[in-house]
Write a protein that binds this DNA or RNA. Sequence first.
DNA 1: AGCACGCCGACT
DNA 2: GTCGGCGTGCTC
Length: 828
Amino acid sequence: MPAGLFGEDATPPAPRLDAAFYVQVAVERGVDAEPRGFTYAVPEGVPSLGDLGVGDRVTVPLGRGDKPVQGFVVAVSDDPPAGVEAAKIKPVRGRLGLAVKLPADLVGLAGWMSRYYACPIGMTLATMLPASVKHGTGVSVRRSYRAAEGKRGSGEAEKRGSQQKTTKLQRAILESAGAGWVERKELLERAGAKTAGPLQKLLEAGRLEERSEEVVTGNLDAVAPPEADAAQRLEPAQRDAVNAIVSRFGSFHVDLLHGVTGSGKTEVYLQAIAKLRELEPQACVLVLVPEIALTPQTVGRFAARFGGSSGPGAAGVAVLHSGLTPGQRHAHWRRVSEGTSRIVIGARSAVFAPLPRLDLVIVDEEHDTGYKQDQLPRYHGRDVAIKRAAMAAGGRGCPVVLGSATPALESYARALPGKRRSEEAKKSGSQAGWSLLSLPDRVAGAKLPRVEVVDLARERRERKGVHLLSRRLEAAIAETLDGGGQVVLLLNRRGYANYIACPDAGCGWLLTCDHCDALGVYHRHDHVPAGRTERVSASGFRLPKGNVRCHHCGAERRLPTHCPDSGHKLSVFGMGTQRTEEELIRKFPGLLSGGGSAAGAASVTRMDADAMRSAADYQRALAGFVSGETEVLLGTQMIAKGLDVANVRLVGVVSADTALNLPDFRAAERTFQLIAQVAGRAGRGRDPGTVIVQTLVPEDATIASATRHDYAGFAERELGIREEAGLPPFTRMARVVCRDLNRRKAEAAIGAVHAELVAADAALGTGVAVTPPAPCAIERVADHFRFDLRMTGADAGAIQKLLAAVRSAGHLTSNAAMAVDVDPVSMY
DNA sequence: AGCACGCCGACT
DNA sequence: GTCGGCGTGCTC
């Protein structure tokens, strides 16, 4: 600046900050300050800020009002980066959570996620650190004391000390404390002091020294104490798989472990981990499972093999999932961060476990859509895990094992050596580092269950009345129960009935939600006071009272009795788990509902989101089924996962068609997965068991493949269809949804995004196809109108390039009005 | 995401 | 004449 410019009337220059150094801060706001956050100055001579580093949390002033906001340090530099006006740089206000910081490798991962999923980096970082860790839940300060070092103490303390008289209690405390550190509580006990008063006096007088340390008190009992669980003898295919995984140690590689249900995938994980720990005792392992609260059996096996998290000197398994109390979560997090627990098992968010190093990543049930987060940041746990593994060990990487009986076609296509490999895999060739490991058979000579198909259309023609259970299924249930076996029944639809309609064909009125473009679902009250029933159904059922619910917005209302248009009495039809339960009890009067309500009684337990309000409900229901107290387990897809009960001899799929008709290109894949997974619950013991699949379309190729346990055949055909249609996994997809209370605004917003995307694609030559905007399959949800568009590119890079351009120009935002979903798993 | 600034309707 | 509606734009 030229000298003399600032005369008396001119604005004085902003005083130059005496900055020791500068930090880039990603603020925990929706501020899309990609890629590097904002620059702040670290003032000279502030001791608590002197060693600020990547991953530390700070408070910084933001905006015109200098509103203090929290953020993460993502980079440190001696000088501010070029292009940032020096006058704009503000100083860091303070530091947060001295004991806790995010490991630098996670900060790097957040950078990748922020770019890949088009999400503000500050929000990405914020989701990596559990709230309980942020807030320091369950942290208490442990204070210990020792006698000050006698005469050597100089000046003040000495003087004040001599001014005061030493009471008897104070002398006792001084003696008890001695030269070593003694904890507060113990010290007072030893000295026989009832209050801390004398101790405080000594402290003030400088005759005692105090030391304090943070202790996380949250209990670690969430991991069951180890039971005996010896390594099992491996089948040849399992041994090959373990050997293959072991051969990858030390560098990045992805193995897709495709093993049929009951083929012993978990044992493969366990033995691979054991081998890794033999070779490298400090090795750290990350194990992801779809929803850990629902898989206590898996966690138990890991804990049994490698030690639980509680008990003396336990160095074993930590768990991180939503079922923990905040204190427990914090405690587990700390143990992981300190390197005390080197094996972490957890749900999606456990991919951010603060392990000090990473040597092996396992993603169990990798096809599960629960890995995809449906809120910001919309990441896929499996894909982030793979990226984290690739970035591990300073870029050298570590191996990943993806396990499933029904792999996602995205994974299968990359791992498959043959012709159906996706373009991406072909392009990068064998260095892509994906391979397929197969466990084609169940362990110990067990056989996959027999699968029968029942044609529901025919059943309806030949039989009067409403029957959710066909004659064949009913007979099989009777036979199984008579023989002392247990039954699993799957129906992937909650409630009693999903159509509430006018029986007059000429009227055709259907009850829909007032706030959504969706049908109301009739739910009975689960606990109806005795004798309170209400005649509703045209077919003559006496129904207990209930409500109509919308499964999209949660709105609830009373069940109307008459059609508002024609005045006819309404009828209720369609199928749901509650209705299946009712029919089951009607047809098997010996069964009692409510799982174990009456001691020793044979019973049916319904397991769906309505009946299972908490993880504890689920654990209880599961325990009842494992113990044999519950004979029939009926539920939605939550019963299809991981359940391993030897006495299950019959699995019934009440309707295989529920997922088949969804407006989603993955409908067939979902259907295959659901049938194959639930069928896998049968025949875990000696008897291979039977599976009965009810469907209106018995000739459907997907259902036929599932009945033959033919994943490869299904995949071959479905991949052919996907390739033909230019769908994933042969392409990559991203989706933008705009929503607004005002329909025209939502439409205008998506139109603007569409124009920007099309223009950017033309300018950059990314070759990404952008669909014209269209109303979503369910256009209105909770009074908001929704429009979407889809982008399809040859590979992830093309989509990324396009998104980055439009995003940095400010035309893509992630907020309540607009959502960007990269690699969407749900299309409606 | 917040929060401030700014330009158009119903009150003292 | 003002208070305040929420549309728009910016945050080192």
